[in-house]
């Protein structure tokens, strides 16, 4: 088997004295959709951010395409083909939709900007209609579409998505998950997805991980995890729809 695109090896992350990650082991292979599920406060977002170097891991290694990136500053990591749509979306509120997308393309040389923009407008037509509008005035669903598109504008090899379904109407959630699946199938985009909504996330994923209190406690194929009794009990009650 070839080396994984991303390997997280014994990673520990602290906020001051509080330890949020306690030796995380996981990997993402080229072309996969990998989902990470876990309760609120388990450390999922911390893992996403640690991969991007903000905060940096105190111990352990993060290997991207054979290269240890765990000591690299965030802006350099993001120039290596990693993009994140972070928790809370973090749209620039006083920039237009178009400017937000331009920010996504900031790491590229700009040569494909028009093509990429057209692709985003095909994926999420609402963004085209809103392109001159300030990011802060969009609805939650539109902001999420913008956050994903902004991440895609950098032409990433690895897309990190932190709770893209949070607070969105079921219809919008379905649309977003459909786009993720399409991008993976048609372009081979590798996706690492964090979700509290385990049902969608595991059904979509090739493989999944379960995190509890800063460590990975379970792993397996998405559908296999979904079938496990302990996963259903802990993460699906009321969540399956």
């Amino acid at each position: 088997m070839s080396a994984p695109l991303l390997a997280v090896d014994g990673v520990e992350t602290f906020y001051g004295k509080i330890q949020a990650l306690r030796g995380v082991e996981m990997e993402v292979r080229e072309g996969e959709i990998v989902s990470l599920i876990g309760a609120n406060g388990a450390g999922k977002s911390t893992l996403m951010m640690t991969i991007c170097g903000a905060p940096q891991a105190r111990n352990g290694r993060i290997i991207l395409e054979g290269r240890d990136i765990s000591r690299m500053p965030t802006h350099q990591i993001m120039r290596l083909g990693v993009a994140q749509s972070p928790e809370g979306r973090r749209i620039f509120p006083r920039m237009t939709v178009l400017e937000n997308l331009m920010m996504g393309a900031a790491v590229t040389d700009g040569a494909h900007f028009e093509d990429d923009l057209a692709r985003m407008f095909t994926l999420f037509p609402v963004l085209e209609r809103r392109q001159g509008q300030r990011g802060g005035t969009l609805s939650g669903g539109e902001q999420q579409m913008l956050a994903i598109s902004r991440a895609l504008m950098s032409r990433p090899r690895l897309l990190l998505l932190d709770e893209p379904s949070l607070g969105l109407a079921p219809l919008v959630v379905r649309q977003i998950f459909k786009v993720i699946k399409e991008l993976n199938e048609s372009q081979g985009l590798t996706v690492f997805l964090v979700e509290q909504n385990a049902f969608h996330a595991l059904r979509l994923a090739h493989r999944g991980y379960v995190m509890v209190n800063g460590v990975i406690t379970m792993t397996g194929a998405g559908k296999e995890l979904l079938a496990r009794e302990e996963v259903r009990a802990a993460y699906l009650e009321g969540g399956a729809h």
């Binding site: 965030t74 802006h75 993001m78 972070p86 973090r90 920010m103």
Partner: peptide, 9 residues
């Protein structure tokens, strides 16, 4: 923080 996540130094 978001700016740095988009590769801005």
């Amino acid at each position: 923080k978001m700016a740095s996540l988009l590769g801005v130094d």
